[in-house]
């Protein structure tokens, strides 16, 4: 991990993407429009990006595919908690509960 000034520069660089995207049309102040096709394609960016971050984390153990690992079990429970119940805390409690039970209770990696 980067330290000190480099970390702050990294944070500033990440922050610049926030203001660049949010301000992209508001700051210029003109009644500009995004091409419709691009707008439709961009709608898929967040879902694709979130899945591209989540799936390697829950499917891989040490860089190898492992379909029977505690994180994947926890992920399945999180999906069930999100789809079946409305409580915003439940996915965190249930997911962490399953992960800790399997790791601490059963000693899985």
């Amino acid at each position: 991990m980067s330290e000190g000034i480099w970390l702050w520069l990294t944070l500033a660089a990440i922050g610049s993407t926030t203001i660049l995207t949010r301000g992209s049309f508001i700051i210029p102040g003109e009644r500009a429009r995004l091409p419709a096709t691009l707008q439709r394609a961009l709608r898929y960016a967040p879902a694709a990006a979130l899945a591209a971050l989540v799936m390697p984390d829950v499917l891989l153990v040490g860089g190898e595919l492992d379909p029977l690992n505690p994180k994947l079990a926890a992920a399945v429970v999180v999906i069930l908690a999100c789809t079946r119940f409305r409580n915003p805390w439940l996915p965190f409690i249930a997911g962490m509960g399953v992960l800790l039970l399997l790791r601490k209770g059963l000693g899985l990696p």
Binding site: I26, L34, L50
Partner: peptide
Amino acid sequence: VLTALVLNLRFVIFSAALA
């Protein structure tokens, strides 16, 4: 930065809509 940008891309749509 590229990852942050992609995760924030939806705001371009919101920004265009609200402008």
